[in-house]
Structure formats: C-alpha cells, structure tokens
C-alpha cells in the first residue's frame, strides 16, 4: 500500500495538523508520501521532509496553487492519485474543501473526519455531532479520507525524506482569490493548543471576552467560544468550538459561561480535563466537567487570573 498525505499549510508554513495525519497514515501502514502544494512553499516542504516515516515529499510550487483554491488543487490530486491506495488530508477547511473533488472525479466515496483506524479499509468516524461513532468499511479501490487530527498523536520530526518537484500545472479560469482576513493572534492555534479557555453566551458581550485574555496568557491557552457566543456576535466564527466549528481535545479545557449544548460538547468532550464555570448549577456542561465551579464568572475570572 502507499499513501499520499496532503500537507496542511498555515500562512505558507507547514501546519501542525500534518504530523497528526501522518500518524493516521502510519496506523493504516505502507509507504507514505506528502504533497505540499502552494506558492513559495519550499520551507513547508523542508519541514514536511523532517516528519518521521516519510518516503518522499512531492512539491507543487506554482502560482496556480496559491491559497490552495479547490479547483486546481482537486485537479492536482487527480493527476497524482494513481498508484496510491489512500489519499489523506486533515479535516481542516482546506482538506474538506478539496478532497471530495478528488473522490468524485475518481468515482469513489470519501470518509470524513476519521478518528480511528481499524485496518487498511475499516475506519471509525463520528456521526450525529459525535453522539455516535460509526465503523465503516470501504471497498473502493482508492480510499479518500479526511482525518480528525485529535484522534492521532503527532509523529516526531527526526526524518529526512527526499524532496521532489511536481511539474503538473493545473488550469484554472473559474475561480480566483480576492482577499483573506485572517485573525491576527499571538496565541496558540485552537486545534493544537494544550489548554483552551472558551466563553459562551454567559460572557454577555464581546468586550467581556477580554476577561479570558489574562488567564489565557498565564496558561499559554488558546481562546475559543461556543456557537451561541458567535451567533450573538461577541466574537468571530473562527473561534467557534463545536460540531460546526473546531474540534479540540486539549489537556485542559475551561468552559466559561457555556451551558453545554450537544453541538458544543461535540467539539470538546474528548479533552483530558474539563473545567466548567457557570452560574447555573443545572447547566448540562456540569455533566461532562471534571471540575465544576458554580458562581458569577465576573467575580471568578479575575480571582482565577490573580491566583494562577
């Protein structure tokens, strides 16, 4: 078997998610190649070559792959997929955008958000917002899979794979990049942070989210939010943790003013330790929290910050 992993990029650099996808590929077994596609991605290719257990890194460095638009990326994957038994990407917005195109053009199904590998053709994936786990078997010749990165521990970085250029240049006259507005942040990425502190509707407004900053600074935490807080306009959607937002599984998750709707729990219930701070002692979040503190978050947060 041989597996092609599509590398995740973040602002042109190799994103942490890729090392988790490689771990999933190792669980399947076989030769593992990584595809790095974009414009000016040599540094990302060098970083990918250092991941453990990689056969080779294939680099498609061309302006047509800038911003990883779906149409040229799909065409590139179709061009390269022959000879591979599996093509994997992380279940990031890029992986989700691109991989179904490969599957459709190869006339195979895609398995989304795989969080466990039983064998080379049998996988575990969450359905119904993670309230059920399905075991699915694919008899397709090519298996196209997006990986939920929280299900696999990242591989190390002591490898030295060879790097080779891919000459194929896709045509794209249908879609073009206009602009990107990325939230600037000096905090760790939500998906990869060891500690996450999230606010919900109980925060009251966007300004109050600043109460989480000091605690996040002290703990080196990423800051998240529930969908209710996003819907209320307190914070941008890229902070959303849940079924329709990001899936996180940090060592410590602190939920502040979050009631614990099933859609939110779907995004964080695999965290190692969960702390809930809420004024309503009946809030469902307490049913999953290891430590619950009932009280007024506007008193608790400053106290917590000063005592950490």
């Amino acid at each position: 078997m041989s597996i092609l992993v599509l590398a995740d990029l973040h602002e042109g650099q190799l994103a942490g998610a890729t090392a988790h996808v490689v771990a999933a590929a190792q669980a399947i077994g076989g030769d593992i190649d990584i595809l790095v596609a974009g414009e000016g991605v040599q540094a990302a290719a060098d970083a990918a070559a250092k991941l453990d257990g990689i056969n080779k890194v294939r680099v498609a460095d061309n302006a047509v792959y800038a911003h990883q638009l779906a149409e040229p990326m799909g065409a590139l994957l179709v061009e390269l997929a022959d000879g591979y038994s599996h093509v994997l990407a992380s279940a990031s917005t890029t992986g989700k955008n691109v991989l179904p195109r490969l599957a459709a053009l190869k006339d195979v199904s895609q398995l989304s958000d795989v969080l466990g590998v039983e064998s080379a053709d049998t996988f575990l994936r969450p359905i119904y917002a993670g309230n059920a786990i399905a075991t699915v078997k694919s008899d397709d010749a090519l298996k196209v899979i997006t990986i939920r990165t929280t299900g696999f521990d990242a591989v190390g970085t002591s490898g030295s794979a060879t790097i080779e250029a891919v000459d194929f240049v896709a045509d794209n006259s249908q879609s073009s990049f206009v602009k990107e507005e990325l939230a600037p942040s000096d905090r760790p990425e939500l998906g990869g942070a060891k500690v996450v502190i999230s606010g919900g509707r109980g925060m009251g407004n966007g300004e109050n989210f600043k109460l989480l900053n000091g605690i996040a600074d002290k703990l080196g935490a990423a800051i998240g939010a529930s969908r209710a807080a996003v819907d209320a306009g307190f914070v941008p959607n890229d902070m959303q943790v849940g079924q329709t937002g990001k899936i996180v599984a940090p060592d410590l998750y602190i939920a502040v003013g979050i009631s614990g709707a099933i859609q939110h729990l779907a995004g964080m219930k695999d965290s190692k330790v969960i702390v809930a701070i809420n004024k309503d002692d009946e809030a469902p979040i307490f049913q999953v929290a290891d430590y619950g503190l009932v009280g007024d978050l506007f008193e608790i947060l400053p106290e917590l910050e000063s005592k950490l």
């Binding site: 199904s109 786990i133 399905a134 075991t135 219930k269 969960i274 430590y291």
Partner: peptide, 18 residues
C-alpha cells in the same frame, strides 16, 4: 462501496465534582 458495520455510543464522559 462503503458499508456501515457498526454504530456505537461514544464513551460516556462522567461528570466530576463541584
């Protein structure tokens, strides 16, 4: 060509202490 072999409830997370 994808068959559903099994559906299970996820491991229940037990509530802890207040």
């Amino acid at each position: 060509k994808v068959s559903l072999l099994k559906v299970e409830s996820p491991a229940e997370r037990k509530g802890g202490v207040k």
